[in-house]
């Protein structure tokens, strides 16, 4: 138990510190790297909760894919962060307001959980904690694909529409670009690929 407490405080501290560094780092690439550390230690917290499936998904999806995209974008775009920081004072009130709302919500959730117990006591257990016979993956699968299958499908449709939209917006066929068509190459035979000509001397091969 003591070991778990140590692990929890360590990872929670790392998460908070990394989160702070994301905001305060001067170099945007360092920011993203700190963000990755924050994701990673959050995954560690999930493991401590007994939600190892969620933890691995967090690492695979966020650390392995989303953050790589962030890193790509930040490295490729030459963002002038000095000019971005200029409006800091102007946006300060709005930022504080949003932060206040978020804090209030989190405090509400925390107090509700501590006074009335977590949602897992009344609904399907999400984490394979004590007293649950389902494994993580089974519990999540049951919620996603059985209880809320229509919502899940709707979410999938929204993503599909977004994907098609992105493709429609960015796909353009430039005329005159030579592309490799593997099928044509495979279907080539000596008959179609070769032409025997018998040119007269002094004349070119074709007209």
């Amino acid at each position: 138990m003591a070991l778990q407490a140590i692990a929890f405080y360590l990872m929670a501290a790392v998460t908070v510190a990394a989160g702070f560094c994301v905001v305060s780092a001067r170099n945007p690439v360092h920011s993203v790297l700190w963000l990755i550390l924050a994701f990673f230690s959050a995954a560690g917290l999930f493991v401590l909760l007994g939600a190892e499936f969620l933890a691995m998904l967090l690492v695979v999806v966020y650390v392995g894919a989303v953050a790589v995209l962030f890193l790509f974008v930040v490295m490729m775009l030459d963002v002038d962060f000095a000019s971005l920081r200029q409006g800091f004072a102007r946006y300060m009130p709005l930022g504080l307001l949003i932060a206040a709302f978020l804090t209030a919500e989190m405090v509400l959730v925390a107090t509700t959980v501590s006074s009335q117990g977590a949602a897992k006591d009344s609904l399907t257990p999400m984490a394979s904690g004590e007293g649950s016979t389902l494994s993580n993956a089974e519990a999540i699968g049951r919620v996603l694909y059985t209880d809320y299958i229509y919502f899940f499908q709707a979410a999938g449709l929204v993503l599909l529409v977004a994907m098609i939209g992105a493709i429609v917006l960015t796909l353009r066929h430039k005329p005159g670009v030579k592309r490799q068509v593997i099928m044509d190459q495979v279907l080539r035979t000596p008959k179609t690929g070769m032409k025997l000509v018998n040119p007269k001397s002094g004349e070119g091969i074709e007209g």
Binding site: I36, F53, M56, V59, V60, V63, G64, V68, L71, N136
Partner: peptide
Amino acid sequence: NVGILYLFAVSSMGVY
């Protein structure tokens, strides 16, 4: 229990 996911996660982090 999620050994294979762990391997997948670790190998996807190798990009960094």
